[in-house]
């Protein structure tokens, strides 16, 4: 019983209830100590929220900002560039566990896998802008090829993340997460019906989407350096 009213207490407090409903609730409050107490609590929460003090950051963020906008930081101190001030946070990746069998089927149905030139991620080697398209042969090598390509790109992104602004990073992360969920769902589907050509090719196509997005992100980082 009181649950029905409990859920409307916030609206009541904020003056959003229709007059007739408000009147009913007020009637109920006269009789229900628990709701009255809950209402008092909510009032205190709102009051507390409204009185929170603003607090400046612990460190001074200005030098990093000054550097980014091309201004000299005060006192000529060496500015901490934003890029290195950022901790290299891991991108929220989740590599799908791939069954070798399904990879074999994927490639048998004519898929091509885009691989970065193997030298791209090694230091001292200039990253290759355009990936070579390689028609990979059969199973286990191919599985390693995809995983290796994804891992390479993820490394590039983790290291270069600071060069992109947070909005772009968020957009990319969210969309990678979308694709990763789709990959997980597609994999589970393949496991339940492993001979299904549609499911296998859909999984392959979704994995390719992940590679493409990772490549796109890497290209953005490269352009921002």
């Amino acid at each position: 019983m009181s649950d029905q009213w409990t859920d409307r207490l916030s609206e009541y407090l904020d003056g959003e209830l229709a007059p007739s409903v408000r009147a009913e609730l007020e009637q109920h409050l006269l009789q229900c100590a628990e709701c009255e107490a809950t209402l008092a609590d909510i009032r205190r929460v709102v009051g507390r929220a409204g009185s929170l003090a603003d607090r400046a950051p612990v460190g001074d963020l200005w030098p990093g900002i000054a550097q980014a906008i091309g201004a000299t930081p005060p006192g000529g101190t060496k500015a901490v560039p934003i890029a290195s001030a950022r901790r290299p946070r891991r991108w929220s990746f989740s590599l799908p566990q791939l069954a070798a069998a399904s990879i074999g089927l994927i490639l048998a149905s004519g898929g091509t896998v885009l691989l970065l030139h193997p030298g791209a991620a090694r230091p001292g080697v200039a990253p290759v802008q355009s990936p070579s398209v390689i028609n990979v042969g059969v199973e286990p090598r191919a599985a390693r090829g995809y995983d290796a390509a994804v891992a390479d790109l993820e490394r590039v992104l983790t290291e270069g993340r600071g060069r992109l602004d947070t909005t772009t990073v968020k957009v990319i992360e969210r969309n990678l997460a979308t694709i990763d969920s789709a990959i997980v769902e597609a994999e589970r589907a393949v496991e339940s019906d492993s001979a299904n050509v549609y499911l296998n090719s859909h999984l392959a196509a979704t994995m390719r989407r992940k590679l493409e997005l990772l490549r796109q992100a890497a290209a953005l980082i490269s352009a921002a350096s």
Partner: peptide
């Protein structure tokens, strides 16, 4: 996440 985002806001 706040420091990094705040820097982005001001930039």
């Amino acid at each position: 996440e706040a420091d990094e985002t705040v820097q982005d806001v001001f930039v």
